[in-house]
């Protein structure tokens, strides 16, 4: 509780900076771009999930059922928690942190999928529950964090109550468009051009680039704000 209070203070302190992302065209573009990339990466990883799990659980309809269930569940909780966080701790650095965390949480999909699936394969006979548990262990955390991006981006871009629906609509538009293209690109082309792990590394890199882009935009905007405005205590 006490910690919360301190944070609240920081928030107020940062508030002008925070509005900065939405104020500048650059900031708005960067938020839209990372929301697009986030949507793209989510569906790319989901499609690869079927490939990752097929050697252990087959490509039966219930394997897809498991994957889609876990992705939907992760996203729904991500939306909920991301929304709450955006109210309590709106902070551009935290926003960048989501992408960094998502990138790191994707690494177990590359490095631990085999041992995890072997263990589960040995201990659970029914491939329905085996695939469900595997999907949960490998995908819940990264996809949940990626789900947090959406409501948080809304918070970053909304300036007024009357504009909020338009901002949310625009963000749904770009992120779902990203998802559509991520699905198409992965299923039509990436699996033809690359190994599974190479596509996964591509997703990790894309997420890291998002984190970097957000931090860079914030810094850039701060700098120009500082140049234009009166000296503020926060500026270095």
């Amino acid at each position: 509780m006490k910690k919360n209070k301190v944070k609240q203070d920081t928030v107020k302190h940062n508030a002008p900076q925070f509005a900065g992302l939405a104020d500048s065209a650059l900031g708005r573009w960067v938020v839209l771009l990372v929301a697009f990339t986030n949507g793209f990466v989510i569906m790319s990883i989901e499609l690869l999930g079927g490939r990752v799990m097929a050697p252990y659980f087959g490509s039966s309809v219930y394997v897809w059922g498991s994957i889609i269930t876990v992705f939907m569940l992760s996203l729904s909780l991500g939306y909920l928690w991301g929304g709450r966080l955006s109210t309590r701790h709106p902070d551009v650095r935290l926003f960048a942190g989501f992408f960094l965390a998502a990138a790191l949480l994707c690494l177990p999909i590359i490095f631990l999928a085999e041992p995890v699936m072997t263990r589960i394969f040995v201990s659970i006979e029914d491939p329905r529950y085996g695939s469900l548990l595997t999907a949960g262990l490998l995908y819940f955390l990264p996809i949940c964090v990626m789900g947090m991006v959406s409501p948080y981006s809304v918070r970053l871009l909304v300036l007024s109550q009357e504009g909020s629906g338009g901002v949310a609509g625009m963000l749904y538009f770009v992120s779902t468009l990203g998802s559509a293209l991520g699905t198409l690109g992965t299923s039509f082309y990436f699996v033809l051009w690359f190994n599974l792990d190479q596509v996964m590394w591509g997703c990790v890199l894309a997420l890291l680039s998002c984190a970097a882009a957000v931090l860079w935009a914030q810094q850039h905007i701060n700098k120009s704000n500082t140049n234009n405005a009166v000296e503020r205590g926060v500026a270095r």
Binding site: P55, Y56, F57, G58, S59, S60, F121
Partner: peptide, 13 residues
Amino acid sequence: VVDARVFIKRAGL
């Protein structure tokens, strides 16, 4: 009634 890959992997184990 099983996916061939799953059955064969298990038979191997």
